[in-house]
């Protein structure tokens, strides 16, 4: 019995960067499921996997890394990718199929689950009971955990694992990470919804935010669309990115790709410096995995302040300029 993990590269354009952090987390999580072996499947990266990808797989104890040689899979097409994942599950005799609860991860896994008519609990965070296997998953943006069964012994058990639910940890002993090619006969229907081109966004995209070591967060407390200069200057000074709350994007002050939270991005930087953000559940869902949180807020009782490691109580537009001056 094995567990198959759908893995994603850190950067589809630079496979030298290895696997995404979330994929490494899911490989770690896979070892908490009842399986003797962990296999992985990587789609969209045509050609031989890079040494960085293989190194991550070996470190995580992966037995076999399934890849697909079909050049038509290079551009994202969820249903076609799911066909490869499904075939890899078949080839490796997988009892469980899991992947990161990322937009692509959830989408591809849902295609596999739909094609096989099996359930797919999303955003699982922990195994809570082994026999029968039960897991907890995040609902309501992570404020509530729902307990569900995973797998009924009949057929493949499919689930996605919430980003940053576990920290990546090396396997007790490294795996061989044999590379195996999966070949599937793709149909036109599999490729009907495929990316035809990628457009760079003016002013960046979510990857700047999700990849940053430092994120300076800004919420309604900023005050207006023309009040971001100090926030941007601090982010630049710390080599980080700007992240914002939903209020800020809804008001049109900043673009949606900067939004942190349930309907934005999930981040896990070394430092999240949340300024003028109350810390609503849906925002917390996106930032709670940050290593250290510092809040700057006029309200000492705001949830962001009480949940933070450090806080400064005061007007962000007084505190940030003073910090910048102190740093200059």
């Amino acid at each position: 019995m094995s567990v198959l993990v759908l893995v994603e590269p850190e950067d589809l354009d630079d496979l030298g960067a290895g696997l995404s952090v979330v994929s490494q987390e899911v490989l770690t999580f896979a070892r908490s499921l009842p399986g003797d072996e962990v296999d992985a499947v990587l789609v969209g990266a045509v050609g031989q996997p890079t040494e960085a990808v293989l190194a991550h797989c070996r470190e995580q104890g992966v037995r076999t890394l399934h890849v697909s040689p079909d050049a038509r899979l290079e551009r994202y097409a969820a249903r076609a990718w799911a066909r490869v994942v499904d075939a890899a599950a078949e080839a490796g005799g997988a009892a469980y199929l899991i992947g990161g609860g990322t937009p692509h991860g959830n989408e591809v896994l849902a295609h596999v689950a739909a094609a096989r008519s099996v359930p797919m609990p999303c955003n699982v965070v922990a195994v809570v009971q082994s026999e029968p296997l039960e897991v907890e998953r995040q609902v309501v943006g992570g404020a509530v955990l729902e307990r569900v069964a995973l797998g009924d012994g009949a057929g493949l058990a499919v689930a996605s694992v919430a980003g940053h639910a576990v920290a990546p940890q090396a396997a007790p002993s490294p795996g061989p990470a044999h590379v195996a090619e999966v070949d599937v006969e793709l149909t036109d229907a599999d490729l009907a919804a495929q990316v035809v081109r990628i457009e760079a966004r003016e002013g960046g995209d979510t990857s700047a935010l999700t990849g940053a070591n430092v994120v300076v967060g800004a919420g309604r407390g900023v005050g207006g669309p023309d009040q971001f200069d100090d926030v941007e200057a601090l982010a630049a000074r710390l080599g980080g990115a700007v992240g914002v709350s939903r209020v800020v994007t809804s008001l049109g002050w900043r673009p949606h790709h900067e939004q942190v939270g349930q309907t934005g991005s999930r981040i896990a930087p070394d430092l999240y410096l949340a300024c003028g953000i109350s810390g609503a559940i849906q925002h917390w869902a996106g930032c709670s995995s940050s290593k250290t949180i510092i809040a700057i807020n006029t309200d000492g009782e705001a949830p962001m302040v009480t949940k933070a490691r450090y806080a400064v109580i005061g007007d962000m537009h007084e505190v940030i300029p003073a910090v910048l001056e102190e740093l200059s």
């Binding site: 359930p119 609990p121 039960e134 907890e136 609902v139 992570g142 404020a143 509530v144 955990l145 729902e146 307990r147 569900v148 069964a149 809040a295 000492g300 949830p303 302040v305 009480t306 949940k307 933070a308 490691r309 450090y310 806080a311 400064v312 109580i313 005061g314 007007d315 007084e318 505190v319 300029p321 003073a322 910090v323 001056e325 102190e326």
Partner: peptide, 26 residues
Amino acid sequence: SGRLGLRVLPPPESNVEVLGEGKTAA
């Protein structure tokens, strides 16, 4: 849905260290 139960996560115990107030905390 297969729901077996729900649990509201208790808020984490606060261990915030307040560094100060206003710009004097910089």
